[in-house]
């Protein structure tokens, strides 16, 4: 992206209130997650049974759960954990999927067929269900849920990267590089990859929200994080039985998931519009 392009994009971002809101939400969440140990008022796994199911007060800002654990502090650590899970998954699938997609698009032929048909089969599953099945087979736990989600998620990136590679492959600078004696690996890493990064980054931003939702869902049904870990989906699940009389136990963790995921979706949605030349013109 040239300097003037970049400036123009920044200008468009500033003019778009929804992107700005998304950006602020994501920024706040990242800050809260990173600074969790300093902001938290209590140890997130400290059970004080004399303080069970207390409503929000100055001592416990968002109340306590049925084990007397401080919900405010647990939410902070929950944000931290869920962001970390999402980051791990997105980093893994975008790297792995993109590499497969670039190889697939660059070489074409049999390699392309094999990779893309496997990707197709993965995409024909309802992905949450497959992730749940894999998580069940692996056994519950945070690490296993990261693996389970990643296994189902890479095809999205493989397809995206393959399409982008096909578009870039025929450019004259690729031909120039080959004429200068550039090998396949050199061309893929130095010339193709940098030119397909933008759509992949947008997809990654959009996926952060989706992965958080899925990781929380896995924990909610008991296949992800385990008690007394501070994970947002698990916290909603633990408060389920207390919904009638102590709604805050489930209410605040779920609301946090909603706000955090909404932030990523606002940001990703806006970024996608900005990078789409067709929409970009209309934004003026």
């Amino acid at each position: 992206m040239r300097g003037s392009e970049l400036k123009y994009t920044l200008f468009l971002i500033k003019r778009n209130p929804l992107i700005m809101v998304g950006f602020m939400i994501v920024g706040t969440m990242v800050l809260l997650g990173v600074l969790a140990p300093f902001i938290a008022t209590h140890d997130p796994e400290d059970m004080v049974f004399s303080d069970r199911l207390k409503p929000p007060s100055w001592k416990h800002l968002l109340g306590t759960d049925d084990n007397g654990m401080d919900i405010f502090s647990r939410i902070l650590y929950g944000i931290r954990l869920d962001l970390a899970i999402a980051l791990a998954v997105v980093a893994m699938v975008s790297l792995f999927g993109t590499l497969l997609g670039v190889v697939s698009g660059y070489y074409g032929g049999v390699i392309d067929e094999v990779i893309m048909r496997i990707a197709d089969v993965f995409l024909s599953f309802p992905y949450l269900l497959l992730a749940m099945a894999i998580a069940a087979a692996l056994g519950p736990g945070v690490f296993n849920s990261i693996v389970a989600i990643s296994v189902t998620w890479w095809p999205v990136y493989a397809r995206l990267a393959r399409g982008a590679t096909l578009a870039v492959k025929e450019m004259s600078y690729i031909e120039a590089s080959r004429a200068l004696g550039g090998g396949d690996l050199h061309i893929m890493l130095r010339h193709i990859l940098p030119n397909i990064v933008a759509p992949i980054l947008v997809q990654a931003t959009l996926d952060m929200g989706n992965v958080i939702l899925e990781a929380a869902a896995l924990s909610f049904i008991g296949l992800g994080a385990q008690p007394p870990q501070a994970e947002l989906g698990l916290m909603v699940s633990l408060g389920r039985g207390y919904m009638r009389d102590y709604p805050w136990v489930s209410l605040f963790p779920g609301l946090t998931i909603l706000i955090m995921v909404l932030g990523f979706n606002l940001l990703g949605d806006g970024l996608r519009d900005l990078l789409d030349p067709k929409v970009r013109r209309k934004l003026l």
């Binding site: 998931i257 909603l258 995921v261």
Partner: peptide, 18 residues
């Protein structure tokens, strides 16, 4: 629309029940 796809379904169900 965006809050719909950002919503933890199970949590929304709990709120409706409440």
């Amino acid at each position: 629309a965006l809050s719909g796809v950002s919503m933890p379904v199970y949590w929304f169900g709990l709120i409706l029940l409440l």
